[in-house]
Nucleic acid binder design. Structure first.
Length: 465
DNA sequence: AGGGTCCCTAAGCACGCTTC
DNA sequence: GAAGCGTGCTTAGGGACCCT
């Protein structure tokens, strides 16, 4: 256990609010402060009380001491401080009946602005982070297959971080701050991840180390605390600010169609073809028609191409789509069988059936993907099988993209994101297309198609508006 | 010796968020 | 549909201890 000597009791924002801290508990408080940056909004405040998880209590005070000395004695200062518990970690549950108080925002702002020392502490053998500095990478080497390292333009991230910080700063002057979903999400999913990544990269000589693990289908997932793949896209694009993004446009419909075509030798259903050509407008008109947000609309079509059911699913009454859109809208979609969206739903279902049955005939225990990765099945499950095939084909295309990039530029700064490749140097999209076609026989698209698009009038007619 | 209780930890599940 | 991370809660099971 090591503690920075000059970070004294009373020097940090939390202890300012806690007049009676016992000396022996200061380690615990240090631990709390070090965790504050990432988690503070998930702890419910009531006056000067905050709640922390059971594990954290035990880490702080040891389980025995917590139970025997603190939990059983209501007069103990920490009993009062930590007695509250809350369930769930989303905003609604965390703030139910409470407000995000000035204390909370204040502590966070002060904590960030202080930044006086870069000292690390150890508590109960656990290494933790304090004052923004990472001491140890917590990636489990046994889980990751390998890592790749890429150069990052850190100055731009710094600039963006300052921009991000502005909207939070204005809360400093207010007495109380109302629970604000936007603020909550902004800090939790944008500021904190970006800040964390910024320090991670700057500590590593302006390079980003990405650990990958390969899944059964051949996809590479970035793992660990600093996983770049599950960052919000906006944040990821800030980090990879000077990179070029080569995205397989309408990837799921496009690749599924080619699997279908290779099996049946037939043209794909026209509904799916129209979607590939007019994706953007179709999503906009769909959002308009059912009066939902564009994001919900995107989610709807994405789910359809992953084989989502509209109403019920096997284990829960409501499918993911029903949960997202609400039962009324789903019923509305299902009520008119002549609409484009209904027919698209049916055609995708047919496409899934054809692909699934074709492979089931060969062997109903295993499926060999396009990259020769094999899926072993105990029980045949259509959606899993199609997902495996789709992902294996996707990984073939991504491998091919990487091969093209590294061989033509002799550069290895690239980041894998399933059906999208970020590259440091620019490449020619048309050459990339031909390379992939030659290597894999797959047709890809890297930009929204502009030819053969329907007029709005035709689209409205198609969707029965 | 058997039964009950407490302590402690790990593992598993559920949930909520992100990405594609 | 695939997967990731972080968090909260429950449960299983072993060890230590005490009582009958």
């Amino acid at each position: 256990m090591k503690i920075k000597k000059n970070l004294l009791y009373g020097d940090n924002p939390i202890t300012n609010y806690l007049p009676e801290i016992e000396k022996e508990d200061i380690n615990g408080i240090m631990y709390l402060i070090s965790n504050l940056s990432n988690r503070f909004l998930e702890h419910k405040f009531d006056n000067n009380c905050l709640s922390i998880s059971k594990d954290m209590k035990y880490d702080l005070f040891s389980q025995n001491r917590w139970r025997q000395i603190i939990d059983k004695k209501p007069e103990h200062v920490f009993h009062k401080l930590f007695q509250l518990r809350f369930y769930g970690n989303n905003l609604n549950q965390a703030t139910n009946g409470y407000q995000i108080t000035k204390l909370l925002i204040d502590s966070y702002c002060k904590w960030l602005s202080y930044n006086p020392t870069y000292e690390l502490i150890e508590v109960n053998k656990k290494q933790v982070r304090i004052k923004d500095i990472q001491i140890d990478e917590e990636v489990d080497e046994t889980k990751s297959n390998f890592y790749e390292e890429v150069e990052i333009n850190i100055e731009y991230i710094k600039k963006k971080l300052i921009e991000y910080w502005e909207p939070v700063q204005k809360y400093l002057d207010k007495e109380t701050v109302e629970a604000d979903a936007e603020l909550f999400k902004f800090i939790k999913y944008k500021i904190e991840p970006l800040r964390k990544m910024y320090y991670y990269i700057s500590e590593n000589n302006n390079k980003l180390k990405i650990y990958y693990r390969q899944s059964h289908s051949g996809r590479y997932y970035s793992i660990g605390e600093y996983s770049i793949q599950s960052l919000k896209k906006e944040v990821r694009n800030i980090i990879l600010n000077d990179y070029n993004e080569y995205d397989i446009s309408v990837s799921a419909p496009l690749l599924l169609s080619q699997i279908y075509k290779s099996i049946t030798n037939e043209n794909i259903p026209s509904t799916i073809k129209y979607f590939i050509i007019n994706k953007k407008r179709i999503r906009e008109i769909f959002a308009e028609k059912y009066n939902i947000s564009l994001d919900k609309s995107k989610e709807f079509f994405t789910s359809l191409f992953f084989g989502s059911k509209l109403l019920s699913n096997d284990f829960k009454y409501n499918s993911a789509v029903t949960k997202s859109l609400g039962i009324d809208i789903v019923n509305l979609i299902l009520s008119d069988k002549t609409t484009y969206e209904y027919q698209l739903y049916k055609d995708i279902k047919k496409l899934f059936d054809v692909i699934s049955n074709h492979y089931k005939e060969k062997d109903n225990r295993k499926v060999i993907g396009f990259n020769n990765h094999t899926l072993e099945l105990r029980k045949w499950k259509k959606s899993t099988v199609v997902a495996h095939l789709y992902q294996s084909l996707e990984s073939v295309v991504l491998d091919s993209m990487i091969k093209f990039y590294t061989s033509t530029t002799n550069d290895f700064n690239y980041v894998r994101v399933h059906d999208c490749l970020y590259t440091k140097k620019e490449i020619d999209e048309s050459e990339l297309y031909h390379f992939i076609k030659k290597e894999t026989q797959i047709n890809t698209l890297f930009k929204e198609p502009i030819s053969k698009q329907f007029s709005d009038e035709e689209l409205y007619k198609m969707m029965n508006i």
